[in-house]
Write a protein that binds this DNA or RNA. Structure first.
Lengths: 336, 336
DNA sequence: ACTTGGCACTCAGGAACACAGAGTGCCAGC
DNA sequence: GCTGGCACTCTGTGTTCCTGAGTGCCAAGT
């Protein structure tokens, strides 16, 4: 029902509208893209495309604008992801290579992505639950107070102050630390609870209350952080462009929960996810699209990142940028 | 040269303009505030105030609007900081009390402040340089790789991976750790360099290269973080209000350096700093005002926080909120 | 020396109106 | 099935006019 030329027309409408931000008419379209047919023919095709719901006109006698459905077809079948230029790739590499710790990697990534796409970038911190324990440290602070530090293989560090039910000696602490590390080293965070379940039993009677307190805080740490942290950058890029709903968009960006859902569930590793306009789970963000991908070191996806922009964004370029950044971040993370 | 009534008129102009966001005329002013004089008299006073530069009219035959100079006088002499309501104070306490670690305290604070003032809140992380070492931890990761973890009395944790020049045994590491902690415990971060300067000399010859490497990374950590981290929240509050320059404001908010300068130098502890419109160091932020204060545990100021809003903000209320939040955060930090 | 009522003047913002231009839909002819 | 022509329909823009709020100034009153 949609022959090749009609698809070409749709592609042309999307491309022109994205670059000019104005409804595109049959005449201009027939000229700019050499379709080899007259404006009248284009008009007929447009009428069909409109009937099918791929494009629409803001008001009678204005040009046509793609609908969400139109963008969807464009992304799925009519466009090709555009790779970055060599210069851009070099810029990414050098910019990310300078990072000193995990925090720095994430911060740099989100800024990089925002700058590259001139849109709002969103990056999720590498998930705790999918990483493994590298080291557990217990630091005595006072007689009845110690600090619990958990270091993961992704370089993430979590710490908690623990109030103890009784006074403990330093060598008791040292013993517990050794025991914890022996059991947990390399253990996936998801498997920590079952791994330490029987640990108190392997201790002398008098140490158990203290151990139990510490372990419960440790478990709490894992649970608390189950909702992962997401940060964004490039909000300034919203200012020039957006027609309406700027407030809604900014509000959504500051809601961790919404952001998490936006980035989507973990999918195929390195597969790009695109959500267009009303496909969005959050009503304040109709009118915006999200391009997201997972990233990680090696095969396992640690977290997700993406960009958010107006529905009329340049999908091929944006998708290229997101994919490239996701890959580079993965490499950096694997290398450190 | 400005008698009491003229000051009263200025105050009235500021208050009315803040609450209505429209130029205020002589008639409305004489009615709403019972000044006991006629509109004509008010007009005369206004003419004088305008000549002196405290107010201005957007165009002939419109009401008057305060100038930056007018707001300045208002803040310095005509207004009184408005304390929070009991309900608000309770809300602050319960909201901040639930924080589990330093990161959480800062995040909650910035959101709280944004919500309370309905403006953009800005909070600086407690400064490393002004805090003291609580513990240094060395965690062996591989034969020639260890992780250095630095814990401060404000609960902040810094970590770095260190590549060593040679293979070290675990007990060597343990020895160095003990030595480090013995020398540095309670040491102000600013004094760390001098404190560890002679440390290699107190080690056996063969340990010195390793120690030197670790110490240099430790020093690097301190220097790197000298530029402190600043976060913001409540950007959505900009949307409804701001007339122009929204893009500039958002850009400024994402520039750490600009934010730092905005919050200002450490002043008298717990003294409120107010910067109005063009008093601002950054040209993109004329049209906005900043109310900031230092916060800390006990007497020493650890960092600063504040809010940013349109020049026509409600200064008494905003100042009250900033002061209150700064105090509560200080208490929370001291208690943990 | 201030304050006050009166009065003429100014100007932004809104309503009414006309008009040019872009774009469409449809039809007849190739 | 494509194309040129033509009548039609809108939005956006520019013009004009008018109202109303607000001012500045002046002369009179206290």
């Amino acid at each position: 029902m949609l022959d090749d030329r009609k698809l070409a027309v749709l592609r042309a409408v999307v491309e022109d509208y994205v670059s000019t931000n104005e409804p595109v008419g049959s005449k201009a379209l027939a000229e700019r893209h050499n379709l080899g047919v007259s404006p009248a023919t284009v008009r007929n095709d447009m009428a069909v495309l409109e009937e099918q719901g791929y494009i629409t006109q803001p008001h009678t006698s204005a040009g046509r604008v793609p609908t969400d459905k139109g963008y969807r077809l464009f992304v799925d079948r009519l466009s090709q992801i555009k790779p970055l230029s060599a210069a851009e790739r070099r810029a990414i590499e050098t910019f990310l290579a300078g990072a000193v710790d995990l925090d720095d990697v994430v911060t740099r990534t989100v800024r990089l992505l925002a700058q590259l796409t001139r849109q709002v970038a969103v990056v999720q911190y590498p998930s705790l639950t999918r990483s493994t324990v590298r080291h557990v440290e217990l630091v005595p602070l006072a007689e009845r107070r110690i600090m619990l530090v958990l270091i993961t293989n992704t370089g993430r560090v979590e710490q908690r102050v623990v109030e103890l039910p009784e006074i403990v000696a330093d060598d008791q602490v040292a013993h517990l630390r050794a025991l914890l590390n022996a059991s947990l080293d390399g253990c996936g965070l998801g498997r920590v609870p079952e791994t330490i379940a029987d640990l108190p039993d392997r201790l002398p009677e008098e140490d158990r209350p203290v151990a139990a307190t510490i372990l419960s805080v440790l478990l709490e740490t894992l649970v608390d952080r189950h909702d992962e942290k997401v940060i964004f950058a490039g909000a300034a890029n919203l200012a020039g462009d957006f027609s309406v709903g700027l407030r809604e968009v900014l509000e959504a960006l500051e809601e961790q929960v919404v952001l998490m859902r936006l980035l989507g569930e973990a999918g195929d590793h390195s597969a790009l996810m695109v959500r267009i306009g009303s496909e969005n789970p959050y009503s304040g963000l109709h009118g915006t699209s999200i391009v997201a991908a997972g990233y990680g070191s090696g095969d396992n996806e640690l977290a997700r990142l993406g960009v958010l922009g107006p529905t009329r964004m340049d999908y091929p370029v944006t998708m290229g940028a997101v994919r490239a950044v996701a890959r580079y971040v993965g490499q950096i993370l694997a290398g450190s």
